[in-house]
Simulated scan of single mutants.
Amino acid sequence: MTSVPPAPRPPKIPESVLVVIHTPDLQVLLLERADAPGYWQSVTGSKDSADEALAETCCREVEEETGLLAAPGQFHDWELSNVYEIYPRWRHRYAPGVTHNTEHVFGLCLPTPQPVRLAPREHTAQVWLPWREAADRCFSPSNAEAILQLPARTGGGR
């Protein structure tokens, strides 16, 4: 019996979401990347198809990466997009010649820090931190900047 190798994955779509999961008192959930120890981030992920609504991408990615279930209406669209250069170490996931990604920022407010179920192929650890500490720990400048905007976007902060 011969085994058939898995079909190659289609290239990632260079349009993604960044979901800052937080509480009313601005505790922020961060996840440590499995493929880059020490790289902490909020939930992120690319659209599965060109016609996938961004709120649906948020729902899918939050569930895949944390096990948390949220409806599309629970996400707050910050109407903020960042265009950034894809790190060279991850460009192989995209079609040849794709070097930039457009990231759309959303917030998801939970009443209290929730336990999460990590996707082990994606993340190895999670932590809830006060917003300033969370911003300092992020490896991505756009993720850190989004977290720094949290008090203004929610009317909260200390």
Rank of each mutant, 00 (worst) to 15 (best):
L129G: 10
L110M: 12
A152P: 01
Q149N: 12
A134I: 13
S140V: 06
I147C: 05
A144K: 09
P115I: 06
P130V: 10
P113Q: 06
L148E: 08
P115K: 04
L129E: 15
T154V: 07
L150H: 02
P151Q: 00
Q126K: 07
L110C: 04
P111C: 15
V116K: 00
P111K: 04
Q149S: 14
L129A: 03
L148P: 00
R117P: 01
V116F: 09
A146M: 12
F139Q: 05
R132V: 04
L148Y: 07
A119S: 09
A119T: 07
A146K: 06
Q149T: 14
C138W: 04
P113E: 09
L148G: 09
A135N: 00
D136R: 07
W128F: 07
A134Q: 04
Q114H: 14
H123M: 04
L148K: 08
W131T: 14
R121T: 13
E145Y: 03
P151D: 04
W131V: 05
S142A: 02
L148N: 03
T124H: 05
L150Q: 02
Q126G: 09
P113F: 09
E145D: 05
A125N: 10
R153A: 14
W128R: 05
E145G: 00
Q126S: 09
G155L: 08
P115V: 02
W128G: 00
A135R: 00
L118M: 11
R137D: 05
W128H: 11
P130A: 13
V127P: 00
S142V: 06
R137I: 09
G155N: 03
Q126H: 13
A144F: 03
P115Q: 11
Q126M: 10
P130S: 13
A125K: 13
P115T: 12
P130D: 12
P151S: 07
N143A: 15
W131G: 11
P111Y: 15
E145C: 06
A146G: 13
P120R: 13
A146S: 08
H123T: 15
P115L: 12
A125E: 07
H123N: 10
C138T: 02
C138D: 03
A135G: 00
R132I: 14
R153F: 12
R153Y: 02
R137H: 02
Q126F: 08
R137Y: 03
P111H: 11
P115F: 08
W128Y: 00
Q114I: 01
D136E: 10
P113A: 07
G155C: 08
L129N: 14
L150S: 00
G155K: 06
W128A: 11
R132Q: 13
I147Y: 03
P130R: 11
W131D: 13
L110E: 08
D136Y: 09
T154F: 13
E122G: 14
L129C: 11
A119Y: 04
L129H: 11
I147W: 01
A125I: 08
Q149C: 15
F139Y: 04
A119K: 08
T124A: 05
R117E: 14
A146F: 10
V116S: 10
R137Q: 10
R117S: 12
R121E: 15
